[in-house]
Each structure stands twice: as C-alpha cells, then as structure tokens.
C-alpha cells in the first residue's frame, strides 16, 4: 500500500529534525515538504493530483494555523522572514529568490501549455439514483419494495437456495466473467479494453452498500439504462434483460453476494447515507 522506500526516509528525516531542532521556519517547511512527498510519492498506487492538491491545501492551512496560533512561534517564523526581506546582507539572495519564484511560475506555465494533450476527464457517479419504477420483461416493479424473490429461501430452505446460487454461478461464468473477472474483482479478460472499468464486486464499497433491487436495475438495464446524471455514458454494461430472464438475473445477483461473501443492504433501511 505504501511505498516504504519513500515513507521510511521521510520518517527518518522528520525524526532527525526533532533532534536537530531547527528554527520554526525550517520545521514548518520540513513538515510541509514531508507531507507533500508522502502524498505524491509515498503510495504504491499514486494518489491522483486533484486529491494531492486538496490535501496539501488543508495541510498548509493547518500548518499556518499552528504557526500563528502562538505569538512565540509566529515570531520565530516572522522575524527571520522579515530580516530576509529587509536586511541589506540578504539583498543578493532576496533578489535571487524574488526572481526565481516568477521564473518557476513561468516554467510551470510553459510545461502546462506545451504538455501533450491528455484525454478529457469524466467524473463518474458511483451509485446513480435508481428510477422509482422499473419495467423488466414488461413487468413493472416498484423499486422501493422490490426484493430478491429467492433471498428468503436462504433461511427457509437452504438447499433450494443453494440450487439458485449454483444457477447464478453458471450464468455468471457464461456471461459476466469476461469483464468482471473470475474473481469478481473487475479484472476480466476484456477489462483492460473498457472505460469505465468493470465494477469490482469484492470491494466493500460496491454491492455491499446496495439493495438487491439496485443490482437488479443495473443488471437488467445496463449502461444504456443509466439515468441522466449517471455518467460517464460509456459503460459497456449490456442491458441483460435482452439475454436473461428475470429469474436468472435474481440468481446471478444471489451468486454475486454468495461468492464475495457480502450481504446486500437490507430493504427499507432509512440511512443517513455516505459522504455526509
């Protein structure tokens, strides 16, 4: 998860700073740089630039709050800065820095403007809102009350339930695994050719967060049935109602939960939702 070759040296430097006792200015700079290095290079999978920027903004704010919340610390930062800006002996260095900063800004603009074009970014809605009703095979369901008809067998008739799960397994390995993969991690044979990439059902943030009716909607209507805000409109998910019967869709949903050992979100649970 973390890139130890980066994180450990950063830690070592920070611990070293603790003993070296630099000035407050040096200390703040060191921490700011350390945070940036860890965020930008410290993760095995790089953190996207947007998040690095957001996090560094928050960290800068926190460091500023730290420094200025105490007159002593603030003085320790301010005095050398003021001295640097005013005293004659620093003048050559001041001129250098004063010129270097605009130069760096200009350079970054240059690189930004001459950088090779990147594919445009489309934000993706993770769980778009389902419609109120859903018509599959000419039967209209109320999404509020729709539930997997086989789910209740789990408790009442485990043997029959297992039969449905096995049927779902067959359906999955005849239809779904090309994209979603043998292990349901979204890494099927065609996954590398898809954008957005197929959903990873093993991720606890996907099917475990959802009611089975939601899956039923997504499976039966696929990419073409995404609502207006459910970007990015490139999903290759087929509308499986063209291929599977209603029973088969429910069975394959059973199998998804069974294989990944997740539980669906219960029906009628009023929740505060995520991200609040």
């Amino acid at each position: 998860m973390m890139n130890l070759a980066v994180v450990l040296p950063v830690l070592a430097v920070l611990i070293g700073i603790r003993f070296a006792k630099p000035s407050m200015l040096g200390w703040v700079t060191a921490w700011w740089l350390a945070a940036w290095v860890v965020l930008d290079f410290g993760f095995a999978v790089p953190v996207p630039k947007t998040v690095v920027k957001e996090f560094m903004g928050i960290i800068s704010l926190a460091l500023a709050a730290y420094v200025t919340s105490d007159p002593q610390r603030w003085r320790e930062v301010r005095e050398p800065t003021t001295a640097f800006l005013t005293e004659r002996k620093f003048l050559p260095l001041l001129v250098l820095v004063t010129l270097a900063i605009p130069a760096a800004v200009a350079a970054s603009i240059y690189f930004d403007m001459t950088a090779p074009a990147q594919a445009p970014i489309f934000g993706r809605t993770v769980h778009p809102a389902p419609p109120a009703t859903l018509t599959v095979h000419e039967v209209t369901h109320d999404m509020q009350t729709l539930d997997n008809p086989y789910r209740k067998l789990e408790a009442s008739d485990p043997a029959a339930f297992a039969v449905h799960v096995e049927a779902g397994r067959k359906i999955y390995y005849e239809n779904c695994f090309y994209c979603h993969g043998d292990l349901m991690q979204g890494g099927g044979m065609f996954a590398h050719a898809l954008n957005p990439i197929p959903t990873n059902f093993q991720d606890s943030g996907t099917i475990a967060m959802l009611q089975e009716s939601f899956l039923f909607w997504r499976v039966s209507k696929g990419g073409p049935g995404l609502p207006e805000e459910g970007g990015p409109w490139m999903s290759a998910m087929p509308a499986w109602e063209n291929f599977l019967t209603e029973e088969e869709i429910w069975e394959v949903i059973l199998f998804l939960y069974d294989f990944t050992e997740q539980r669906p979100r219960a029906l009628h649970v009023a929740s505060g939702g995520e991200g609040h």
Binding site: P131, A132, T133, T135, E138, V139, T140
Partner: peptide
C-alpha cells in the same frame, strides 16, 4: 416511465 409519470399510479401486471 419518464415524462408521462404514468407508472406513478398505473401498474403493468
């Protein structure tokens, strides 16, 4: 199912 809002009240099946 969309603009007409028919399925707010009517059902099929």
């Amino acid at each position: 199912s969309g603009k007409g809002l028919c399925f707010t009240c009517h059902t099929v099946g």
